[in-house]
């Protein structure tokens, strides 16, 4: 396993190295070929770069995610982690590179079709619908499966009612799965922060996505809440086989939860491998020492 992923990493770097040697631009063709060659990669980013004004948030980042794995992305503040997830979900448009979701390549992922592509996400800063109840927030995660018009809803026609019933049932299942029964009918804005984070996870899970993007799902939580959340994330993968990309600052959580870890620093990927490999990587240690993440580097060592 370790050998395989190491090999993969080396293989991934090869074109980059040859490109640097040749002093040429991105070699898109070979990348494409490589994409299709990897059958078990459900998500592949190649040569992703984006900048805002003068700030380069990401440059030439490659990332490959296998079906069913929990793939962590870590890095100091401002490393570009959220930008990466925003590019995958089509909210930011990369200046360079391509994204392949389930074999389908995009230069820009269409955000409005994201759910139908089988991708769901949570946001670093809560992005719930404050004016809706917990249950309605969760149910909204299945809105992409609706086909009925407003007339059918106003008239209460059977098709609309059936659709509502199916969604309500899925919603109930998720409510039970994430232990949200007690608050299901409350207005979501009245919930404590930790529970709101959980509702956001629920809204993403109810869509039954193939790929789940989690941007710091445990930020600002107590240790117990974190453990609970980690349990939910693992259970979501184990029970539903969903592929997960996880951004998280708590190194302990990351090391315990993920199959592979990519490390970003100043918009570049500086390491990629199993938790054990990444922990031993000198570049990672260097990146973390002397940053605000001091305690994290302690943990790493």
């Amino acid at each position: 396993m370790i050998g395989a992923s190491l090999g993969a990493a080396a293989y991934e770097r090869a074109p980059e190295i040859s490109r640097i040697l040749a002093g040429a631009g991105p070699v898109e063709d070979t990348r494409r070929a490589r994409l299709s060659a990897k059958a078990d990669a459900i998500l592949t980013l190649s040569g992703i770069g984006i900048s805002f004004g003068g700030v380069t948030a990401l440059s030439d980042v490659d990332l490959e995610v296998k079906s069913g794995e929990i793939r962590a992305v870590i890095g100091p503040n401002g490393a570009g982690k959220s930008s990466l997830i925003n590019i995958i979900s089509g909210l930011y448009h990369a200046n360079h590179g391509t994204i392949a979701i389930d074999g389908q390549p995009f230069a820009r992922v269409p955000a409005n079709r994201l759910a139908r592509l089988g991708v769901a996400r949570t946001f670093q800063n809560l992005a719930l619908f404050g004016g809706l109840s917990v249950r309605d927030n969760i149910a909204s995660g299945r809105v992409h499966t609706r086909h009925t018009s407003f007339v059918e809803h106003i008239a209460g026609l059977p098709r609309a009612r059936r659709e509502d019933a199916v969604i309500a049932e899925k919603t109930d299942q998720i409510v039970v799965f994430l232990h949200l029964e007690a608050v299901a009918d409350r207005l979501v804005a009245t919930l404590p922060y930790g529970l709101q984070k959980r509702v956001e996870l629920a809204r993403a899970l109810v869509a039954e996505p193939k790929i789940l993007l989690l941007d710091e799902p445990m930020a600002g939580m107590t240790a117990t809440e974190k453990a609970e959340m980690a349990g939910f994330v693992r259970a979501a993968r184990d029970r539903h086989g969903v592929t997960i990309i996880l951004i998280e600052h708590d190194i302990g959580v990351v090391m315990g939860l993920s199959d592979r870890v990519a490390v970003l620093d100043y918009g570049r990927k500086i390491a990629d491998g199993t938790p054990a490999e990444v922990r031993a990587d000198p570049a990672v240690i260097r990146a973390y020492i002397g940053t605000a993440e001091g305690e994290a580097s302690d943990e790493l060592l």
């Binding site: 979900s89 909210l91 079709r113 719930l128 619908f129 909204s140 992409h144």
Partner: peptide, 10 residues
């Protein structure tokens, strides 16, 4: 309440 989130969920 959140146009971006609304778009992303479909």
């Amino acid at each position: 309440d959140n146009e971006t989130a609304a778009r992303v969920i479909g």
